[in-house]
Simulated assay, not measured.
Amino acid sequence: MIGLVITQIAVIALLLILGWAVRFKKAYWLISGFASRPEEEKESLIENRYPQKIGSLLIGTAIGMLVLLPLSFTEFRFAAEAQFGFMLVILLGGLVYLSRYEVPAKRKRSYIIASILFIVTFGPIVYLTVSSHKGYEMALEEDSFEISGMYGDKWDYRDIQSVQLLEEMPEVTWKQNGIGLPTLAQGHFKVTGYGSSLLFIQKEHTPILYIEVKDEQIFVNSKDSSETQIWYEELKKEAEKQTKPPA
């Protein structure tokens, strides 16, 4: 929580400083590619107030993020997503809009590049956010169990080596390849005492079901504690069946 807030404040401060330098101190060289342009293009852009508007865009984005910052201290769980989502929409959308102030010869190309950048950057983020909020589901089948959603897979009961029901989630040290949201951890994370593990965790909900399958460690739970308990009992029963010697 504290680390995330510090990161947000640092981003706000950076945007404010850059915007102030460009807008009020005429540090136009801070704008990507501006310093290498021909002098006549620089003069035309300054006359059109293109670099000044870039500075104003940075300052406006920072102010908007600052207004949203108090959400981090409330019970609203998606404060970080709202703040950084706002930043991306305003910055990328602003660049598309400001293409109209480019020099005429490069205006169309600038608009196309800015639009592509907006789509390429924001499109996957929207997809990942929507997919992650769909979460996951666990299905217990006849010979296997399956966890659906991103990073999900299917595992045979015969490969289960251990099933435990934990009262709380062990410490997660860092994300390797996954989605880490205020309410959800889904994907590959380093877990103290377990190493690289596959997590499907609804945060602030217990208990936690731990499943060891060959060389893979899986942590999963449900928002409904009774459902997690059912998963544990069913998987434990199936695992015990596999270890029983044939009659």
Rank of each mutant, 00 (worst) to 15 (best):
I2H: 11
G3A: 11
V5D: 08
A10F: 10
V11C: 11
I12Y: 05
I12G: 00
A13F: 10
L14I: 11
L15N: 00
I17T: 07
I17F: 09
I17N: 04
W20D: 01
A21C: 08
V22A: 01
Y28T: 05
W29H: 13
I31P: 03
S32C: 02
P38W: 11
E40Q: 13
K42H: 07
Y50D: 03
Y50S: 00
Y50T: 03
P51R: 00
K53G: 00
I54W: 01
L57H: 03
L58Q: 09
I59G: 02
I59F: 03
M65K: 06
V67S: 04
L68A: 05
L68I: 00
L69F: 01
F73D: 10
F73S: 09
T74Q: 09
F76C: 06
A79S: 12
A80Y: 13
A80Q: 11
F84C: 01
G85M: 08
F86P: 03
M87P: 05
I90S: 02
L95F: 14
S99R: 09
V103Q: 00
P104Y: 09
K106A: 10
R107P: 08
S110G: 01
A114S: 15
S115E: 04
S115T: 15
F122R: 01
V126T: 12
L128E: 03
G135Y: 10
Y136G: 06
Y136R: 08
F145N: 04
F145V: 08
D153V: 06
S162N: 15
Q164P: 02
L165Y: 08
L165N: 07
L166E: 06
E168Q: 14
V172F: 03
T173L: 14
Q176W: 01
N177K: 13
G178D: 04
I179C: 03
T183K: 10
G187P: 07
G187F: 09
F189K: 04
Y194S: 01
S196K: 14
E204C: 00
H205Q: 11
T206A: 12
P207T: 09
I208E: 05
Y210A: 08
Y210G: 05
E216K: 15
I218F: 07
F219D: 04
F219S: 06
S222T: 09
D224F: 10
S225L: 11
I230R: 12
I230Y: 05
I230L: 12
E233F: 09
L235N: 03
L235R: 06
E238H: 14
T243P: 01
P245S: 05
A247F: 13
